[in-house]
Design a protein around this nucleic acid. Structure first.
Lengths: 140, 140
DNA sequence: CTCTATGCAAAAACTTTGCAGGGAT
DNA sequence: ATCCCTGCAAAGTTTTTGCATAGAG
């Protein structure tokens, strides 16, 4: 229940926040424009400023995780521990890779003298769909 | 020699481009504001629009590599093949980790059904300096 | 009832684009 | 002389902030 989750993080439960969490959960990965559009489609129009604030808060308490793509595009996902992503450079699709990060982290941390608390790994390439029917826009 | 490099990529050698390459090389990692400031300090003022264009060109021909941090901050480095980075969440320092990516790539690609052409790995944490004397701004 | 979150509007930060003049080959 | 590059200005994106009101506990 998102209501509990929010409370446990010291945040009040509001319709907007619950909706954001629901939408991010359903989408897997989503950016703010898509969120805004989803809100419109559900009849509930929420200004971008509010979405930015909600996403910022949820990220800072660790409920959401941000994936920053090139050109400052940010996508959000429910934080579920580190995992690698695949990013299609053609269509912008972002896909979770089902791999434990342990080995990756071990290798990388072995070379790192600082204390780390998270690791991001992204593979960049062309997804199968785009290699079959090439599109135009790199929404990345 | 940067002049040769630029020519080999089909780009003309200009003072601005050579300067950008020199500065990126010297800095290791640098963002556009720092570049702009470096230009000012060297007496040669180059508008941001031009820097954006130069950085975009050099990136698209593969001479530079971009590291995109959260909040749309982008840093540039001389492209030298993939390698992991450490990012200090407190001071924003970005550090190259001296590790072959082979093993990391192998593990991640093993779980990826798409064709990939690059991999980015970033460890996030607090650098030694910041854990000793904590600062205020997370410039990330 | 108190205090936080939302909505609105404005601004700040970041990046791109068009066009005219200048420089490299 | 030709064509690419730069500089300038303007516009486009993305994100943040201040303040008054509405809503949650």
């Amino acid at each position: 229940m998102y209501q509990e989750l929010l409370k446990s993080k010291g945040l009040k439960s509001t319709p907007q926040r619950v909706m954001v969490l629901t939408m991010v959960e359903n989408a897997g990965h989503i950016d703010i424009d898509q969120l805004s559009e989803d809100f419109k489609n559900s009849g509930m129009s929420v200004p971008l400023a509010t979405l930015y604030r909600i996403l910022g808060e949820l990220s800072s308490v660790g409920v959401l995780h941000t994936v920053t793509l090139s050109k400052g595009k940010t996508r959000y996902e429910i934080a579920k521990g580190d995992h690698p992503h695949f990013l299609c450079e053609e269509c912008g699709q972002l896909e979770d890779l089902k791999v434990a990060m342990n080995d990756i982290v071990a290798i990388a941390q072995n070379a790192c003298t600082h204390s780390t608390n998270s690791v991001s790994v992204t593979l960049h390439g062309i997804c199968q769909n785009c290699s079959v029917n090439p599109k135009k826009p790199l929404k990345d």
